[in-house]
Design a protein around this nucleic acid. Structure first.
Lengths: 198, 198
DNA sequence: GATAGATAGAACTGATCGGTACGAACTCAG
DNA sequence: CTGAGTTCGTACCGATCAGTTCTATCTATC
């Protein structure tokens, strides 16, 4: 329950509290799978409050997706940072983290992928696209550190494996992260010329 | 307009006509993005007819997805068959076909992927899973013909590239098919031992 | 040409949806 | 203590939805 009755001490706290509480509900049920009334009831907030902060259900959805994108991005970036300097270790860390996510019983695919597939709204498409931009940047940086001849292309190939693994894990094979990891490592240059360490 | 007024000569014709007419509408607007009333109006069929043949909107959706899965599967299988015996040519044909699809202005992602992401219904999940089963079989066969040491694993890796390319093409980069093709060819054994041609 | 089955089209139902309005309860500043 | 602002809870509104029913009309068959 993110909010109390009466005047709010910290409006920003209220806002983020609503977002955090709404995130799992929209993820589990789907963006159109839960109505504003039930959403607010489970949030412990009133419709009036939600509409004051976000203007519409669409506004709440976009705020939730933005927050989710940032969290996921920093989660992956953190795994890379914790893996040391070897790009092979970094890539291994990424796919191991993903596989741990797929193993979670609550895993229902990537919220960003699901939203883009079900929600035909330009703003949501932009959020998803920016999300993939950030992910591509991270993977391209690893490709560059690995000394790839064409880091941009390798980065895009790695992006296909990450997104493909998440989708296949959701709909077909929970072990997709392991296969993606093998493929990703196989795509890296076999001998690290390490000309692109910076 | 799949149906005329009056008694029908061929009920199966009516059924497939409804499915074919409904397919692009559900694809463009999303499964929940168009109501049964508008759907029937655009189909030129009455609600009574649709409900007689399919029982519910859900039944129509499942019939549309089944038909779509079969069409797409035979489309890809046809491209492989037309590419000759070299597994590298076959894989190239698959990704070239996919890229041609992504280049279509009407491309809005894979209907199967979209349905699975937006529709939290067990039956739809099963249709999608079987669809990916068939696709995995096809890719594993190519991997085997290519002489892969572990055709099952390579097949699954190729599946990640196919599905990842379709998703990324829909939401981020229309050229995903070209990058996927390069990655797929790089994953194939460099020297075709061709022990698995049969 | 009479009959039976299938159809289009439109009216209708009950439920649910997003969004608004309002009163009562609450907090904080003065 | 008072008043302004915030919140909850509920009631409400108009629109839309999936699904049903009815009638008039069409076609194939006998």
């Amino acid at each position: 329950m993110p909010v109390r009755k009466g005047s709010t001490i910290d409006p920003e706290r209220t806002r983020t509290g609503i977002i955090e509480a709404a995130t799992p509900l929209l993820y589990e049920r789907g963006l159109d799978g839960i109505g504003v009334a039930e959403l607010c009831a489970r949030l412990g907030a009133s419709k009036e409050t939600v509409y004051r902060y976000f203007g519409s259900k669409e506004g709440l959805i976009q705020a939730v997706l933005e927050a989710r994108s940032k969290r996921v991005t920093s989660w992956i970036a953190g795994a890379v940072a914790a893996a040391g300097d070897d790009p092979r270790d970094q890539l291994t860390a990424v796919f191991d983290e993903l596989q741990r996510w797929y193993d979670d019983p609550g895993f229902r695919g990537c919220a960003m992928q699901n939203a883009a597939a079900q929600h035909h709204v330009e703003a949501v498409r932009e959020i998803t696209s920016r999300h993939l931009d950030r992910r591509l940047d991270l993977l391209t940086a690893i490709a560059r550190r690995a000394g790839a001849a064409d880091p941009d292309t390798l980065g895009r190939q790695l992006l296909l494996l990450v997104e493909g693994a998440t989708l296949v894990a959701a709909h077909h094979d929970r072990n997709a992260g392991k296969h993606a990891k093998q493929a990703a490592l196989a795509l890296l240059p076999t001998v690290s010329t390490s000309t692109g360490t910076v």
